[in-house]
Amino acid sequence: MPPVSNPTLRQRRLGAELRKLRERAGFTVTQAAAHLGVNQGRVSMIETGRSPLSADRVRAMASAYDCADDDLTTALAAMTGRRTRGWWEEYRDHVPVALVDLAELEHHAPGLRVALLIHIPALLQTTDHARSLFRAVVPPMRQYEIEHRLTHRMKRQGILHRAEPPPYSAVIHEAALRMNFGGPVVARGQLEHLLEMSELPHVTVRVIPFGTDHFPTTGQSFDYIEGSVPQLDTVQLDSHHGACEFLDAEAQLSKYRAVLDRMESCALDPARTRDFIHHRIQDL
């Protein structure tokens, strides 16, 4: 099969995980190539996500690297093949590539957890609220860029409305509920939508009120995207220059899981959160 010229994050992640297995086995690229019966260039292309793989090849590599974790091997084998032609591919030339990768990650995720301080989670935003955010971006976006970002975000939300949606858990600071992006009418519509979404059985929303005297955060919002096994989880961070940063080192994943757990323990439970949002709506 010909090499992949622009591998997706999912393809790069498969290669990176195979590299981790090789390094844990104590193999150099040269040794791995000899063991697998391929040239060194093929191993390098595999580990950068540029060489398509079959599930059988992944299993053979895991065996060669003495990987005893059958669940991880099965999960890696499921990531093989060529790029999934999902709806996000039509946006590859219209939004930052990282946003295309994010949509693909969300599509495959068994579960999603997010923590935000001054924004409503992207998957729970109304069209008017999202448009007001895009209009405030620095430097300003052109109108067609706003519309591409907007339709991309709305299509991402489809995972919460499909036949078997993933569990979705959001921790939101009270500050996010008091930001009147787009004005009072838009803000009210957003809070009503948030309240409605929080009542879905697979959506859990918790609010951290101003009165909470401690919770672990550096002030940064993030998404925790679960993989089919914990080793394949991913943390996504936003930045002011418009790109997404993806973290997947074991220590990083462990730290962000702990932060989310602690933030959830500091937040109101879902029922009290709904009451809190309802009172905020009445204040507008």
Rank of each mutant, 00 (worst) to 15 (best):
T218L: 11
D66L: 12
A60F: 01
P139H: 11
A251R: 14
Y65S: 05
P216I: 13
R92L: 09
H240W: 11
E23W: 08
L260M: 13
E106L: 07
W88T: 10
L76P: 11
R135T: 01
F215H: 13
Q190N: 08
D238P: 12
V203N: 01
V207N: 04
I159C: 06
G86W: 05
G227T: 03
Q125A: 13
F134E: 01
A16W: 08
V186T: 07
D93V: 03
L72F: 11
D70K: 15
P201E: 01
G211L: 00
T48V: 13
E264S: 14
H129I: 08
R83T: 14
G86V: 10
A33D: 03
R274V: 14
Q31D: 10
P52L: 04
V235Y: 03
A249L: 12
D248K: 00
R92G: 00
E17Y: 01
M45Q: 15
H35F: 02
I172Q: 04
V58Y: 00
V97S: 15
D248A: 13
R162P: 08
A32Y: 03
G86N: 09
S198R: 05
R131Q: 15
E264C: 02
K20Q: 04
D248M: 08
Q143L: 05
E47R: 03
Q190K: 06
G182E: 03
T30E: 06
T204I: 12
A62H: 11
I225M: 00
E147K: 05
R12C: 07
P167A: 14
D71P: 05
A34N: 12
H173F: 03
L253F: 11
R24I: 03
T126L: 07
A175F: 01
E196L: 10
R178A: 06
P7F: 07
P166Y: 07
A258K: 06
M263R: 09
A176Q: 07
S265G: 10
C266T: 05
E145Y: 09
R22V: 11
R12M: 12
P2A: 14
L99D: 00
R280L: 08
P139V: 10
A251F: 03
A60G: 07
P209Q: 10
R206L: 00
T30R: 14
R50F: 04
L105F: 06
H107V: 13
M197W: 06
V207G: 08
H129G: 00
R262N: 03
